Computed example of a mutant assay.
Amino acid sequence: MSTLSTPTPADYVDAPRRELLDALTAAEGVLVDNSHGIGAPRTPDDVRHAALVALATARALAVLLLRFEPWTQLDALRAGAPLVDVAAACGLDVDEVLAGLRSRVAGQVEHGLMPRTVADELLAAVEHAAASPPA
């Protein structure tokens, strides 16, 4: 039985992106080296732990990056990117992007995290993008 604890994405919630990337890179390095017989032999516990760290850090990194997706969508729209292109870049359809942005902005206002004036400005950009024909 392993003496190493099993990591979870919650273990990395407050970790900076660089730390997550470094942990993921180190864990994947162990896995690649082990798969190809590079370097000193690894114990099954080391390989198992590296695989679990890779899974947990990758998930934590994905969650961290996806938190910024709505703001990046808004940035793209305000910079003139067609809504259809924003949706394609996210792997979503246009209706999903619109619903997500509207919901995100409304939630920010509801929880006092965004002034109504800013929300109105952002929603105007969303509605303008929704009304604009695809290029």
Rank of each mutant, 00 (worst) to 15 (best):
L66Q: 14
L74H: 02
G107I: 03
D22W: 05
A54E: 06
A81H: 03
D93W: 00
D33L: 01
D95I: 07
R18Y: 10
H49A: 12
D45H: 04
D95N: 13
L65E: 15
R59T: 12
H49Y: 11
L98N: 06
G107D: 08
P82V: 00
V30L: 12
D46E: 15
V32N: 09
T57H: 06
D120Y: 00
Q108S: 12
I38F: 11
V94D: 03
P70W: 00
T57C: 10
P44V: 13
E19G: 11
Q108G: 07
A99Y: 11
R78I: 08
A79R: 12
A56Q: 06
L31N: 01
L92E: 06
V30W: 08
G112W: 05
V30N: 11
D33K: 09
L101S: 07
T25Q: 13
A89E: 03
L21V: 15
L55P: 02
G107M: 04
V109F: 02
E110M: 12
L61A: 08
E69A: 14
A99L: 14
G91S: 02
R42L: 09
T43W: 03
A23P: 00
V118I: 13
D75V: 10
Q73K: 11
T72M: 08
A60P: 03
D45C: 03
V109C: 07
E69L: 09
A87F: 00
A27V: 03
V53Q: 05
E96L: 13
G91R: 01
P82R: 07
R59C: 08
A76W: 04
C90K: 01
L98Y: 06
V30Y: 06
L52V: 05
V118R: 15
H36I: 12
N34D: 15
P44K: 12
D93C: 02
A81F: 01
W71Q: 14
D45K: 02
A58F: 02
L31E: 01
H111F: 09
A76I: 00
A119P: 06
S103Y: 12
L74F: 00
G100Q: 01
V94T: 10
A79F: 03
E19W: 11
A26D: 13
L74R: 05
A60W: 02
L66K: 14
E96T: 12
P70K: 05
W71E: 15
A62F: 09
I38D: 08
R48C: 10
V84E: 14
E28Q: 15
L61F: 05
G39H: 05
P41A: 13
V30G: 11
L66H: 12
L20P: 05
A40T: 13
E110W: 03
R18M: 14
L61E: 09
